[in-house]
Amino acid sequence: MSDQQQPPAERPVLNGLVALLAVALGVGLILAVVALLGTKVLGLGGDDGDAAGDSTARQSMYLPTPVETDEATGPLVTLHTEDPDEPTDAESVVPEDEPTTELTSETAAAGEISLQAVATAVASGERIYFSGVYPGGEGAILWVQRFENGDWADFPASVGVTNGTFSSYIFTGVSGVNRFRVIDRDSGTVSNEISVTVG
């Protein structure tokens, strides 16, 4: 009777872990089914939305076939197209007793320089943006001048002409009305004058 087999020892910890794992899987499966049904009932993540999104994405990636265009003639710039009598948000209203810059939408004749300022009044130390056209002045270097003590003095700035147009900006710490122009020193051609109130 000594060789009689003993019953296997019970393993309560292992049995408890197996039971816990089975319950967790069952609860997870139930939650997954509820979530899936909830999205179908509420219409979340539907195929229709995905299809619309894919369609939009495909349309945004459309590239037209390149075609040769006619060569443009004249300067490729649009100058101040708004009514100068109606101030815009980007413009500062200047009192009537102070001079304002006359902004024209006309292009300059060949060999003439037309200059304009983006704003007629800026804060002290703020950039003064300007642009213009110079038909026939391709590659020219235009030097900025300021009216000081009754004469035009060189200002430490210059800008090049490309495709008959130019644009840049300058700084000045001199408050009050500042008068500027640009000059092509090679030909002696000078632009019209612009006035900008600083401060």
Rank of each mutant, 00 (worst) to 15 (best):
Y169K: 01
L20H: 00
P12T: 13
I30T: 04
M61W: 03
E91I: 06
P12Y: 08
L103R: 14
P99G: 08
Y169T: 06
D89K: 11
A72F: 04
I194A: 01
G43T: 02
S105L: 06
D70V: 15
L63W: 04
Q145F: 07
N192L: 07
L79Y: 02
R58W: 00
D54N: 06
R185D: 10
V77A: 08
N178T: 01
N15T: 09
S2E: 12
A157D: 05
V27L: 02
L20A: 08
G43P: 04
T172V: 13
L25G: 11
A110E: 09
A9H: 08
Q116Y: 01
G45K: 07
V18N: 07
E193C: 03
A140T: 14
A57C: 00
L14H: 01
L37T: 03
L36T: 13
V27P: 01
V23C: 05
F130P: 04
E98K: 06
F171L: 15
P8E: 15
G125I: 02
S191K: 00
P66G: 12
A51Y: 03
S191M: 09
P12A: 03
A90S: 05
G43C: 00
G164C: 05
G26S: 08
Y129E: 12
V67K: 13
E71Q: 14
L63E: 11
L115A: 11
V23W: 00
V33P: 00
D70W: 15
S124Y: 04
G49Y: 03
L42R: 13
G53H: 10
Q59H: 05
Y169S: 09
S187H: 05
G46K: 09
T120A: 10
W152F: 13
A153C: 06
E102V: 15
Q5F: 03
R127P: 04
D151E: 14
L14T: 08
A51E: 02
V33E: 04
G137W: 01
L44A: 11
L103V: 14
S187F: 01
A57Q: 10
